[in-house]
Amino acid sequence: MKYVDAVQVQKRMNFRLIVNTIAKIIFFLSTVFGLVVLGILIYRVFSDGIGWINMDFLTGKLSTDPEKAGILGAILGTLWLMVVVAPVTMFFGVGTAIYLELYAKKGKLRSFIQTNIANLAGVPSIVYGILGMTVFVRALDMGNIVLAGGLTMSLLILPITIVASQEAIRAVPNHLGEASYGLGATKWQTIKNIILPAALPGILTGAILSLSRAIGETAPLVVIGIPALLIPFPGSIFDKFTVLPMQIYYWTLDSSLVEEYAYLASATIIILLLVLLLLNTTAIIIRNKFQKRY
């Protein structure tokens, strides 16, 4: 007698195939769910805001009069913020990841640090705002300038960057490092020439995600006290500034007073999405350029 009975297999076959199809449908539906919600959001935003976008809106200064209001200041503020956040986060994030993955001895201290980094990634962003307020704005007496906001934002996204970079470094096969050591390379030469280039696409993917988060984040900057009012365009990292999500926040908040502010907020969301798209595309192009080399 055979253990795999043909009749039994036949009987169960229909059931197995149905389960198989149900599984596929469930996964398809979960994808559709996200897409539909996103679609509705984009439709609402665009139908409200697209009519308000024109050259004056893009190049104008902030104004309490909805007809005159422009958001160039906020666009520039967001870009200046990235000028601080991107290099600071990349340097400290990748640096920490290299230390933890390639230098630190496996032990209690390392796993303590590791656990805390993972925990920090879950701390509410407003807490980072309080930290930034205390340290950068007050203790270091910077005031609410781009540098202070950028450093705060860097702290916020640092844990994500570290964890993503660690994953990327860990994914580099050991035998590549061994080959380099075997040729008499020092540890730093091996990291610089072999491990980092191989990990770079993964590191950049993490960086893209975390920078996107920094671009859209509002709460920490609210705590730091970014002015919602008319200020000159920021020209350097030492100027006062506002950013796109802040502008969305204030306009949405005040839409009960002036109805048109809601449309301005929608228009600003569109601009924010475009800026995100632009920055992400740039990062992806850089990443693909590095991937091509291998």
Binding site: P173, H175, L176, E178, A179, S180, Y181, G182, L183, G184, A185, T186, I194, P197, A198, R293, Y294
Partner: peptide, 18 residues
């Protein structure tokens, strides 16, 4: 590093750099 420059090594699995 000096030793490994004089004593080269070939590994079990081919491991060229990417």
């Amino acid at each position: 590093e000096e030793l490994r420059t004089q004593v080269g090594m070939v590994f079990q699995k081919p491991n060229p750099f990417p």
